[in-house]
Design a protein around this nucleic acid. Structure first.
Length: 1168
RNA sequence: GGGCUUGUAGCUCAGGUGGUUAGAGCGCUACACUGAUAAUGUAGAGGUCCGUGGUUCGAGUCCACGCAGGCCCA
């Protein structure tokens, strides 16, 4: 008979290595999928990592979360396919290649061809794939890496193109513009990454203007004319005066308080009435001029008087119209909406005037609020009819504006550094003019002077601020409208919001808050990226933009190419069907298509946002709809996804957006949704996990040197401990402060205890030759009370843990298991049951003959076995290696039989088994409550013993227990034996009313009384506190009592027991215990005997004796008490110490001395 | 600046719907146990529940305003 494996020198990291080999050899992961063939599917989507960086400890966290639920669902009987994937496109890859090659983006097409560059990207992107695969394996993350999806593959891109075409056909894909950082000097847009390069932001001195916008008088603005007969102006501040000719709105904060001030213009001396934020009055008006009289002002006076005439909230200004500040050009659409006050959420009173000048073509915020309010941008049409801004791509005002500025220079006789023509007005110094020239006038200055002359400038001054500069040319960057392709996500905003409500978010707040708010404030998705390594936009256009085509498949493209060949536009030798053909740039750009009129169409040069790549993975991973339609149907949508919270606006959003849009625009998807009963979501349950910080709560970073290496951690502690620690410590959506001290605690406290419990089982099971028999177990109702009790706890645990996993609460599951193992199984069940395991039949085992176990002993083994087994199964999702090890150790010896009889333990791996279900019939809740009393009573008695300094080995006569109700007494009586044994007390005496010893006290039941009496609470509780014993007895007997005008019932009060006079008493939570600490000689003698046994056992151990070795004891007499104690308990001592004889002698030579509390005893032990 | 989130013992965390002694583990101290033994049990010390105001008979819990940390976005 093979024995259970013992646990000497157990090392969890080695367990993982051993199990890993087993998994690999027996293809356990593959089988965990195939063994569920035909079962219901549970779909998990893997958010693709990018393998061009190394994995960190936070990936262990994120992937543990993913792994847990896939394993759990497998245990529940589902088939869980999980296809791995790699995110391969995007800026990080490009940057890494540039770093490796020592080039910049400018060199692409010069030092290196696009083809070579992209080839390099393709090679680099999988640079750290080995490390990733290694981590995946070592941490026990089960995901299919044999056939992963890879976003750069042709099939993947084709699916993307198909999706884009679905959107395009429903007018959800359009060309527009956004305001982006742009370098006129370099002629190129800048990415946010380029803007973050060091040295980009410089301190510069610019001319800033507070402009006066003249309010038009009408019903809306009438309130501004009540307190003044002057012209009324709204003041707005700008550090970019060149944007003033394209102003079309003023933004105010609705909640900001504004004031109207009567005063004079400091340049023209004209009387004016101006509006600005109250908080900023001090910035423009000096406190010392407060008392000056307006009437006393003479033109040219240095001190300008002012008078605040009224104040009001910004909301009142909304809709007020003003005269165009520089009426050089008119908006050519929605002109009636231009030049009004609108609300801007970005407006502050930090600087300026609390009013923001809005120029929709030159500011991202401006663009956004203008759009929200229907305010037009100031643009013109160029010769091709396209809408263009008032500044060209070289950073120069267009001619019509230049003309006006030139007129202004002449009209106001402005002296400039050189004669300025209509085409000389660059908005920044892009032509390297000598700024040292005393007559140098920047365009900003020219504008400022004109405004001053025209009573349109309230204040002009130099202002120093930081401003971004182009890293290539060192010239200032402009915020400028650039062409972009957009997905009209706003069109389906309501649908996305509605669908989001059907998704189960963990934590909920991320879904309703962070994600929900983001959806509410959705703007169209800017899809364009001006880069090289990514999915090309499949849109071809004629030069004039009159005709365009969106390609949705390679087949369609091939057809179009053939057409173009016939039209003589595309090289006739060009072959797209060639399987080698790469859809990436530059190859795709070599394709020219023919329009209906035979004109060439060129591909729009943009690539698409890499987030579209990953958001499209539900479809593209299966090359849908070109292949695998059946698989797709079974795996759409995902039941579960999990990523970091930083993906809220990344992957979570793109998955959701694409799914929502396809659910409305694609017939194929509509059909699938209908079939699988999906409203249109891409995922049903999602966990967004938090960050992994260092133990002090700081972000891990290389510069701080606090980065935790996942591989070192795995090899030191093993995956199970790390995974357990991460789940148990805090819910995954909270940030985790990663501390090795915590990891070690988990290892010691949880795994250590569990291993000890297992080795306790093994130690005796092997001695007794116990082997689990699945077909023959002691039935529940014949178990010992402690067995029943732990089985009851175990049943509750199964329910609790299953519910927690079902609810995507791994932390609750882990904590539940841990509490069960530590508190119930190890510290109570095993501890109290030790004697059952080591007593009688072990004596027979030494001769090797099979032993017939008593039913009680068999029940004990079976119970402990079952608890270990269930624990292994419940913990398997979180600790896949150790649970496997435990499972195999417990079951390998009965596998053959299990297979033969098709029983639950037939599987070679725990990860193939089916999760146990709770059996209501195997619960004894009455016993559970009783045991709870037992534990609490024992704890109180221990506390009393401690206070009285009477150790547990010394028996005491009795415990007194006040009994407040009969039920309580019954429960305690049912576990009386356990209590007496545990605390070494002879009897429990129940004190009821009849005893005359019980003194009760009463206190108000606030929770109940509060509802009834509310404000009278204090009166009632005062009355209750005056209750005498007679009152308490009365209310107990009659169930009600009227006193001082209050009619009280029994439930209105909580009756507890008062301390028992003359006794050592402890109480906690309504439970009171008294301990009789009187030591009679009889008790003392028994205590001495037990102490003596203890000392002999110690000596046995010191001598290196085995448990079953027999001895003889000789003791030297030492006083009356000791001698009689030993004599009286001779039989007990001999049994306990395996002594064949014990002799008391007057004197003893060659003896050992042992210290007992008050005595020193000489004894001698000889081995028989 | 906006959205979300966290703040409870030295540390890591629990604390449905408000109810009168705020809990656990670790760590610390002490004791006990000694046939699970490089294990185990018990007890003790340790708290302005981030602050201020409010609602209420009663607030760790509800509301408002702050402060500090975190994430995302401007």
């Amino acid at each position: 008979m093979s024995k259970y494996r013992e646990t000497k020198d157990l090392n969890l990291a080695r367990v993982a290595t051993e199990i890993l080999e087993f998994w690999k050899k027996e293809k356990i992961f593959e089988k965990s999928v195939s063994v569920r063939e035909g079962a219901d599917t549970f779909t998990f989507y893997e958010g693709p990592p990018s393998a061009n960086g190394t994995p960190g400890i936070h990936h262990v966290m994120a992937r543990t979360v993913k792994d847990i639920f896939c394993r759990f669902k497998t245990l529940q009987g589902y088939q869980v396919k999980r296809k791995g994937g790699w995110d391969t496109h995007g800026l990080p890859v490009e940057l890494q290649v540039e770093k490796e090659l020592g080039i910049t983006k400018d060199d692409i097409g010069k030092k290196i061809s696009i083809a070579e560059y992209n080839q390099k990207c393709r090679e680099t992107v999988m640079k750290y794939k080995d490390q990733w695969d290694d981590l995946t394996m070592k941490m026990g993350y089960w995901v299919d890496l044999e056939k992963p999806y890879i976003t750069y593959e042709k099939e993947y891109i084709e699916s993307l193109w198909w999706i884009l075409k679905q959107l395009y056909d429903k007018q959800l894909l359009y060309k527009g513009y956004t305001i982006q950082p742009y370098s006129p000097a370099a002629g190129t847009g800048l990415s946010s990454h380029e803007l973050n390069l060091p040295g980009t932001y410089k301190d510069v001195k610019d001319t800033s203007v507070v402009a006066q916008f003249k309010v038009k008088r009408n019903a809306k603005s009438e309130f501004l004319f009540k307190e003044t007969d002057r012209e009324v102006f709204i003041l707005a501040w700008t550090t970019t005066p060149w944007t003033l000719p394209s102003n079309t709105a003023l933004a105010v904060g609705e909640k900001i308080t504004y004031v109207q001030v009567n005063t004079f213009n400091s340049y023209t001396y004209k009387p004016v009435s101006v509006v600005l934020a109250k908080d900023l009055v001090g910035k423009y008006f000096s406190e010392k001029n407060k008392d000056l009289k307006l009437e006393g002002y003479k033109p040219g006076d240095k001190n300008i008087p002012y008078q605040i005439v009224q104040e009001f909230a910004g909301a009142r200004l909304l809709g007020v119209r003003y005269e165009q500040l520089m009426p050089y050009l008119q908006p050519f659409y929605d002109a009636d909406k231009a030049f009004q006050v609108i609300a801007g959420d970005f407006v502050t009173t930090e600087d300026g005037t609390g009013v923001v000048h809005t120029s929709p073509t030159f500011g991202a915020d401006d663009f956004r609020v203008a759009k929200q309010n229907g305010v037009p941008a100031l643009t013109v049409k160029d010769e091709t009819g396209s809408e263009v801004p008032t500044v060209d791509r070289k950073g120069k005002f267009i001619t019509p504006i230049g003309e006006k500025l030139k007129e202004g220079i002449a009209k106001y006789n402005i002296k400039t550094h050189k004669p300025l023509g209509a085409d000389d007005f660059y908005v920044k110094n892009y032509t390297n003019e000598d700024e040292g020239n005393p007559d140098y006038k920047s365009t900003d200055v020219v504008i400022s002077i004109i405004l001053k002359e025209e009573n349109k400038a309230f204040k002009v001054e130099k202002y120093e601020h930081t401003y971004p500069h182009c890293w290539r040319t060192d010239k200032p960057v402009l915020y400028y409208p650039l062409d972009s392709w957009f997905i009209r996500t706003t069109a389906l905003k309501d649908k996305m919001v509605e669908l989001n409500k059907t998704i189960n978010w963990k934590p909920e707040s991320t879904g309703t808050g962070r994600f929900g708010n983001w959806l509410e404030n959705l703007v169209d998705w800017n899809l364009s990226r001006s880069r090289y390594w990514g999915t090309p936009l499949p849109i071809w256009r004629t030069k004039d933009g009159r005709e365009e085509i969106c390609i949705g498949s390679i087949e369609q493209l091939t057809g179009e190419v053939e057409k173009a060949k016939r039209a003589g536009i595309q090289n006739s030798k060009f072959e797209i069907l060639n399987s080698e053909f790469d859809l990436h740039r530059p190859y795709v750009d070599e394709i020219t298509l023919a329009s209906s009129t035979g004109e060439p169409m060129y591909r729009e040069p943009d690539l698409i946002d890499v987030w579209f790549d990953s958001g499209a993975m539900p479809y593209a991973q299966w090359h849908f709809p070109f292949e695998n339609k059946d698989i797709f149907e079974k795996s759409y949508p995902a039941d579960f996804i999990a990523e970091g919270v930083d993906q809220t606006r990344g992957w979570f959003f793109t998955l959701h957006a694409i799914a929502t849009m396809l659910s409305e625009s694609s017939e194929e998807i509509k059909t699938v949704n209908k079939k699988v009963n999906n409203g249109g979501v891409a995922f049903k349950n999602v966990i967004s996990n938090g960050l992994v910080l260092d133990k002090n709560g700081n972000k891990m970073s290389k510069s701080k040197g606090n980065v935790v290496n996942p591989f070192e951690s795995l090899s030191k502690y093993g995956a199970d401990v790390l995974r357990w620690y991460m789940m148990e410590n805090a819910p995954p959506w909270d940030n985790l402060k990663f501390d090795f001290a915590g990891v070690e605690e988990t290892q010691r406290r949880f795994f250590g205890t569990l291993i000890n419990t297992y080795s306790f089982f093994v130690l005796y099971a092997n001695i007794d030759g116990f082997v689990k028999d699945e077909m023959d177990n002691v039935p529940f109702d014949q178990l010992a009370p402690l067995d029943k009790w732990i089985i009851t706890k175990e049943q509750s645990l199964i329910e609790e843990v299953t519910a927690a996993y079902n609810d995507y609460e791994p932390t609750k599951a882990a904590r539940g298991i841990q509490e069960f193992v530590n508190d119930h199984l190890s510290n109570w069940y095993v501890r109290l049951n030790r004697k059952r395991f080591w007593q009688p039949s072990s004596a027979n085992a030494s001769d090797g003959r099979p032993v017939e176990l008593s039913q009680d002993k068999r029940a004990a083994y079976e119970t402990l076995y079952e608890c270990l087994m269930v624990t292994a199964q419940l913990m398997a999702p979180i600790a896949p290696f150790f649970s496997e090890w435990l499972y195999k150790n417990l079951t390998d010896n009965i596998r053959q039989k299990a297979k033969q009889f098709n029983t639950p333990l037939q599987y070679e791996s725990i990860h193939h088994t089916l999760l146990v279900k709770a059996e209501p019939g195997r619960k004894d809740e009455e016993l559970e409550k009783s045991m709870d009393y037992a534990q609490r009573i024992c704890s109180l008695v221990h506390s009393l013993r401690k206070n009285s300094k009477v150790k547990v080995r010394t028996p005491l006569q009795k415990v007194l227990l006040p009994v407040l109700d009969e039920k309580f007494a019954q429960r305690v009586k049912s576990v009386e034996a356990i209590i007496k044994a545990e605390v070494n007390v002879k009897e429990i005496q129940y004190i009821d009313d009849a005893s005359g010893l019980l003194v009760k006290k009463v206190k108000p039941n606030f929770a109940r009384l509060g509802k009834q009496y509310g404000p009278k609470m204090k009166e009632v509780s005062a009355v209750i506190n005056t209750f005498k014993q007679a009152d308490i007895q009365a209310i107990e007997k009659q169930g009600k009592l009227s006193k001082d005008g209050f009619d009280l019932v029994l439930e209105d009060v909580l009756i507890t027991s008062e301390d028992i006079p003359g006794w050592s008493v402890a109480s906690e939570n309504g439970l009171t215990v008294a301990l009789d600490i009187t030591l009679t000689d009889e008790l003392k003698r028994e205590g001495i005997a037990r102490d003596f046994v203890n000392r002999v056992q110690n000596l046995r151990k010191d001598m290196g004796l085995e448990v079953l070795d027999k001895i003889s004891i000789e003791v030297e007499k030492n006083g009356e008490l000791v001698t009689s104690a030993l004599a009286e308990h001779k039989a007990y001592i001999q049994t306990e110490t395996q002594a064949l004889s014990m002799e008391l002698k007057e004197t003893l030579s060659g003896s050992t001395e042992v210290e007992m509390d008050e005595y020193t005893i000489k004894l001698k032990i000889t081995v028989n």
